[in-house]
Amino acid sequence: MTDLADAPTGDQAVAVPLTTRKDWSSDQEVRWCPGCGDYSILAAVQMLMPELGVRRERTVFLSGIGCAARFPYYMNTYGLHSIHGRAPAIATGLAATRPDLDVWVVTGDGDSLSIGGNHLIHALRRNINITILLFNNQIYGLTKGQYSPTSEVHKVTKSTPFGSLEQPFNPLSLALGAEATFVARTHDMDRKHMMEVFRRAHAHRGASFVEIYQNCNVFNDGAFEAITGKDQRADMLIPLVHGAPIRFGTEGQRGVVMRTDGTVEIVDATSVDESELLVHDEHRDNPGLAFQLSHLAAGPTEPTPVGIFRDVERPEYGTEMRRQVDQVIERRGPGDLHHLLRSGSSWTVE
């Protein structure tokens, strides 16, 4: 039994070919609603791929169900459009047996936080080598406009005509609570920011979790307008830069400090000493501070941090699984079926 990751497919000997966005685009017509935020995310990914120096044949896009889940059909790579919520589970089997592959999981707030919540947290906990792009539009789009697990309380939708009663999930808090090793947020209005976050997510070995604020212009138009609109961004998005004090605003006039109780708050940066501002540390082992930052805004109507919240190293599942196999083979030698069948008490009838 060879490992497929070792199988000679011929490509190792050849340099990664130079590609363009076109090489990464499939021949399938993109069928999202005109004006959907998904288009800009797809463009960012297709434009990023040639820059990553990776091979199309070693790249897999996997998805569940929902508008975002159509994504794999539009990438000229290997792809699997699966069933609702289960993409992280399927990706786990693929990534665990094929550590040579880049496995991207494209999902939505309904797909991975509602029906697939269990698979998401366990994939993060195990640190499976996958890059999860969660398109969060705070609504069910494909089923035409019901509230989602990230919809705000009191949200009026087709299924909640008198308002939703439910406390929404904060996707980043959830991922951090599951001990995810890479956690980031970006939004569909800033291609450059998306590409940079995706690049970092791809470079991370293990499970990377990226929340993308994505506008659904049909069922939840403008959900993020208050923070992602061109004129609002400077005052409403808080860029997280590793090693730098956290500040934002057109003049950098606002900043984030840590209170004595460990929580964080936004202050007037001009009224405090620079040294009092919280310096962002992506690599902090304890996820507590990243969790506080994920809670800084109650929703996309308040100043909201974007960028990389957490990027720490932890053994990656597929590599560990393979290491265990290799260690046993080294100790016992490769398996021999003849001996296996005789490993209990056997006897011979003449």
Partner: peptide, 27 residues
């Protein structure tokens, strides 16, 4: 494991078969 066997105790029955199918997709 000397036979290269990978066993994965999943979070639930669905993930168990899902991971198996993902592995099949991978060959």
């Amino acid at each position: 494991k000397e036979f290269g066997v990978r066993t994965f105790q999943a979070e639930d029955e669905i993930a168990g078969i899902g991971a198996a199918l993902g592995a099949s997709f991978g060959g």
